[in-house]
C-alpha cells in the first residue's frame, strides 16, 4: 500500500447504480484489472437516489473520500437520474467546503458497463487524490476511525484508463 509519511490507508466509499456503473466494476474484475483496494462499493438502484445525507453519513462514519459512479449522461436507465446525481454532487461539494472537509473529497464519474478500465482508473484517481489530501479531518481529530471498512480486495495494478469527470457544471 502507498503511504504518506505515516501509515495511511484511505477509506473510500463509492455509490454506484445497479446498471452500467456497477457492471463496470464487474467488468474490471472479469478483466482482472488491478485497482486500489481501498474502495467500499454501495449499490443504489439508480444514482438518482444519491442523497447528500448518504454522502455526509459516509464521511461521518469515517470515509476519507466518496465518489459516485453513474451511467454516462444520456444513458441513464431512469432517463435523468445521473444528472440529478451530478447536481447533488455539485451541491454537496459546497456543503463539504462549508463544514471544512473540502469538496475535493467528493466526485462523480460516468461509466458504461464495458468500461472496466475506467472503473479502475476512477478508483485510482480517488485513491491518489485522497492520499494527497490526507485523512479526513474527522479521522485526524476523533477516535472513531474507520467505521467503513475497505472494500473487497481486487487485483492491484497500474492500468490507466479514462478521465475523471469533475462535476463542476
Amino acid at each position: 500500500m502507498q503511504r504518506t509519511g505515516e501509515c495511511f490507508e484511505p477509506q473510500l466509499t463509492a455509490f454506484t447504480c445497479s446498471y452500467c456503473a456497477y457492471m463496470s466494476g464487474d467488468t474490471a474484475g472479469a478483466m482482472r484489472i488491478q485497482y486500489p483496494a481501498t474502495t467500499k462499493v454501495i449499490k443504489l438502484p439508480c444514482t438518482g437516489k444519491t442523497d447528500a445525507r448518504y454522502i455526509m453519513s459516509a464521511f461521518e462514519d469515517g470515509a476519507d473520500g466518496v465518489y459516485i459512479i453513474a451511467c454516462p449522461i444520456g444513458n441513464c436507465h431512469h432517463v435523468r437520474g445521473n444528472e440529478r446525481a451530478r447536481a447533488r454532487v455539485v451541491h454537496t461539494k459546497k456543503l463539504l467546503d462549508q463544514v471544512g472537509l473540502g469538496g475535493e473529497r467528493l466526485d462523480i464519474f460516468f461509466l458504461s458497463a464495458g468500461m472496466g478500465e475506467s472503473f479502475a482508473q476512477a478508483a485510482k484517481e480517488m485513491n491518489d487524490r485522497i492520499m494527497r489530501l490526507g485523512p479526513s479531518p474527522l479521522r485526524m481529530g476523533g477516535k472513531e476511525v474507520g467505521a467503513g471498512e475497505a472494500g473487497e480486495q481486487k487485483n492491484g495494478g497500474d492500468e490507466t484508463g479514462e478521465q475523471s469527470v469533475e462535476a463542476t457544471q
Binding site: 455526509m56 453519513s57 463544514v99 471544512g100 472537509l101 479531518p137 474527522l138
Partner: peptide, 14 residues
C-alpha cells in the same frame, strides 16, 4: 437530518 450531520461534522472539524 442533513443540517444536523453538517453541524456535527463542522464542529468536529473545528
Amino acid at each position: 437530518q442533513l443540517m444536523a450531520s453538517a453541524l456535527r461534522i463542522a464542529s468536529r472539524v473545528d
